[in-house]
Design a protein around this nucleic acid. Structure first.
Lengths: 222, 222
DNA sequence: TTGATTTAGTAGCAAAACTATACTAATATG
DNA sequence: CATATTAGTATAGTTTTGCTACTAAATCAA
């Protein structure tokens, strides 16, 4: 090795911001304003700067698109660089990051901005007919799979909810992510160690009100 | 975006080749011949070329160090680039790949070469005192964790064995990877769907011989 | 030849976890 | 005050897991 001549490879970060809205898993996408793929939807992304960490580039991307600066659940997914032609402008490798956010936070932040960014239903984005820029459909597919898997053996689903929530709501989140219905009694057993009763209750229509829970922080300090 | 000026970021691949030898998990490492970290052990790595895919760079690294060109189990692990100072020579991001190989294949290939590469016990490499070049100890730790996890819910352990094997041997592999002893009867129930009896037997000392199995390929076509 | 030793392989029990159903509880509405 | 609706719980039945105890097939030594 010794001194090296850097190859002309651009390092980018692609960013997937997920939320659950109207009982659907949605992802933030932006219409491209320039060629290539002008007019098509794409994941937000940035070029990584020489003096910038990868996770910083991801957070910068989040802030630029949405104004969100809070600490959110952020996870590196995969690095795409096996198709040398994935970006027609030259060699790019892209590190994909995903973040999960409760829809309540979006309202606060994005509502104030006048942007073209929007949350779109993941299932629709992945449908055959839909055209998506670059290899972003594949990345999106990969991310959704990761969310599904991790929903089964971690507590990432909680990141789609605010501080306080009801168990019926939490169960609904799990059902959306897993794509199937769950048995109430079993579900509650499986998550009971991760929640604590706040003592509050939420009245919500002509029926028995739900108890309000929050995370059991003891169990969330991995 | 439009035209871009590439930042001076070097893209590298770090390669972890694992095997099981003398009932220990071992990884291929090479002593560095130059500064920085001259003399210390490091994972083999290469700079990614402009016209080269990431997985190709990984395979090239494997071939250069060991002469192995066969298809082996290869998996992208993680991309390291949060510490801008990880390589004292400049900004480098490195994509780590791991490969698993049965020790029988090593004998064939590496035995013929006169190199300084060697397989070293992972536990020793990770011990407090041991000094390892760059951030390679962290990468190694991450990889070992990945192997452990995947051993529990996939069949990656099989990649440490040749085509044909006995169940006591397979169990031993699992025990080494998981770091704990398993009950014979339970283990056999859990893997029975993944193996088929070849009809052959292996005599191996003053005791009952073992049946020889091979993978059930139906179950290995993910 | 036969009994001791050693590892391979199997049968089956008890405990735990999981799947599913059926119940009770608390609210609003007419 | 009966009804509708969703929240929450008790529990039965099944499957999986953890473990023990057995039988089987080889070599070796007396």
């Amino acid at each position: 090795m010794g001194k090296y001549i850097p190859e002309k490879i651009m390092v980018a970060v692609d960013f997937l911001l997920f939320t659950i809205e109207e009982d659907q898993l949605k992802v933030l996408m932006v219409p491209r304003k320039e060629e290539p793929f002008k007019g098509q939807l794409a994941l937000p992304g940035v070029a990584v700067k020489e003096k910038e960490t990868l996770s910083h580039a991801a957070k910068r991307c989040l802030a630029e698109e949405t104004g969100i600066q809070d600490s959110v659940y952020l996870e590196q997914l995969y690095t795409w660089g096996d198709d040398c032609k994935r970006d027609p402008r030259g060699r790019v490798i892209s590190i994909s990051y995903m973040a999960l956010i409760p829809r309540e936070k979006i309202k606060e932040k994005i509502g104030k901005r006048v942007t073209e960014v929007s949350f779109l239903e993941v299932g629709q984005m992945l449908s055959e007919e839909k055209e998506i820029a670059f290899d972003h459909k594949e990345i999106l597919k990969y991310a959704r799979e990761r969310i599904r898997n991790k929903t089964e053996y971690t507590t990432i689903a909680f990141h789609f909810l605010p501080e306080e929530f009801t168990l019926p709501r939490l169960q609904k989140i799990y059902e959306i992510l897993l794509g199937k219905e769950l048995f109430k009694a079993n579900f509650r057993k499986s998550i009971q160690e991760y929640v604590v009763d706040t003592g509050k209750i939420q009245k919500d229509g002509a029926h028995r009100p739900s108890k309000i829970y929050r995370r059991n922080e003891d169990r969330f300090s991995e």
